[in-house]
Nucleic acid binder design. Structure first.
Lengths: 146, 146
DNA sequence: TGTAATCTCTCTAGCAACTAGAGGTTCAAG
DNA sequence: CTTGAACCTCTAGTTGCTAGAGAGATTACA
């Protein structure tokens, strides 16, 4: 049996995240030690690894909930699982396409900046006037955090 | 002078979003009619268009705040603006690269699914076992919502 | 001028998917 | 047996909005 710290280290998931997954029902309530600390089995470790991997692939927690539900019924048809994966693939493809349009526009902006004063800055200019855009970069608004 | 509804329609921004931008100080407090309704000038419309466009390009509201602050000082150097745009460009490039790794893996998963039962499903199998992954798709976790 | 429809107001609460912190308990090593 | 790391619960915060309640303002038409 693993403590929550060992489990987190093994699966690459932070401790509060594990508790959060339990809270929202993605992970079952853990066994407890005599002192009320959570104890996990291999089965839970596999389940958590599954969740983490699916998260890395961009599946939402809701989609993962479905996937886990399906994987608990191994004699059913694969069709639903396949559909979820295909949906995810399409979403990723769409996102790549939009990001590439953004990239093009950002490159144009940066390339045109001659390093003068802000009054002549192409970046500010382009941001202020959508008509400058070469491509339609759509309405898909997503912050890129980094 | 525009009411908030007209402004929103003109700029493609929803009404609560405009009020939200005012609340967090991205837009100045609007003039008010005798009945306390917000009234906007062309200047604010331009500012809102700028914000929206920058959001579409993936700039965070904090970055936009910086950009707006810089654009209010048109005689200063363009360097800071340029740096913000370059940072944004790098972030977008990084995100594209990671998404492409995800796409590759999702394609492999979907391609291997023979349409049998879940017990034999490659998608479930791959999700459960990271060792199946061809590429390292990294730890950058982001839900693709759609 | 009346009134009905549409806007707008403020305020609070909610969404995803966590993350951070306070204040207290339990466990393992020496 | 003590120290310090790891654990517990609980609340609140993050980003960028969105939704709803309940009230007031404005506009269009008769």
């Amino acid at each position: 049996m693993l403590t929550i710290g060992k489990l987190g280290a093994a699966a690459g998931v932070k401790i509060p995240t594990i508790r959060y997954y339990e809270q929202i029902g993605l992970l079952p309530g853990a066994e407890r030690s005599s002192g009320n600390q959570r104890l996990y089995s291999r089965v839970t470790q596999d389940r958590l690894a599954f969740i983490r991997h699916a998260r890395e692939l961009g599946f939402s927690l809701e989609a993962i909930r479905d996937l886990l539900g399906l994987s608990d019924r191994p004699d059913q048809s694969c069709a639903e699982v396949d559909a979820l994966a295909r949906t995810q693939l399409q979403a990723v493809e769409g996102r790549i396409a939009r990001l590439q349009a953004l990239k093009t526009e950002l490159e144009r902006m940066v390339g045109q900046c001659a390093g003068g004063s802000i009054a002549d800055c192409r970046v500010i200019e382009v941001l202020g006037n959508h008509a400058h855009c070469a491509a339609d970069h759509g309405r898909d608004i997503h912050t890129v955090s980094e």
